[in-house]
Amino acid sequence: MEHVDFSPLGDSGIVIKLGDAIDQATQQKVMAIADYLEEHPLPGMVEYVPGYTTVTVYYDPVAWYDPRAADKPYERFKALLAGKLLHIRPDEQTPPRLVEIPVCYGGDFGPDLPDVAAYHGITPEEVIRIHSEQEYLVHMIGFAPGFPYLGGLDKRIATPRRQSPRTAIAPGSVGIGGEQTGVYPIESPGGWHIIGRTPERLFRPEEQPPSLLRAGDRVRFCPISQEEFEKRGRTAR
């Protein structure tokens, strides 16, 4: 990989910028670098965080500090990273996983489903159909433990956030906020429209990795009944 843009993030981070827009080619580069760093951690590297168009690598500037060297830690770590990137091919990454997330739409689990339908002048069933027939891409995990930033929401159901945010949204709630959709892994405040809930746990502190999803995954939501939700909920917890 060549023609990559590096910039510092404070004194302990370096941002590798791989594009200016959210698109598939950029995502592939991001994932290729993330896969590489996962397999080959660099000396003095603390961790890496994939984003929409970036991979941020945190390093230990003290470990990379050599009072005799003319170059300071940032330059030295950047040189190492740039050298490694030359050998990474975006087309050689592992194929994406498809993760199916069961969702019980509407009812008590999705109190805002009628509002979303009314906003677009369609039926709740149509909202469910549109939301669940799309395949989504996990661009990155953030905001909360295991929370996926998903790309691919159909514009026909994109809905501006609620006027007043809720103070507590139950874990597993599936929401639509603007042109984004996602699942709240832990109880959090939030302004998204809640259209359903999954019995699947997105944040699993006792497991390794602790997140069900990871950047690069493909996601599909599968409608389930309330009985199915209860059944799956019991086995999942």
Binding site: L9, G10, G13, V15, G51, Y52, T53, T56, Y149
Partner: peptide
């Protein structure tokens, strides 16, 4: 801006 990693001290 497109969301990306932040750091302690940002």
């Amino acid at each position: 801006l497109i969301s990306a990693a932040v750091s302690t001290g940002t």
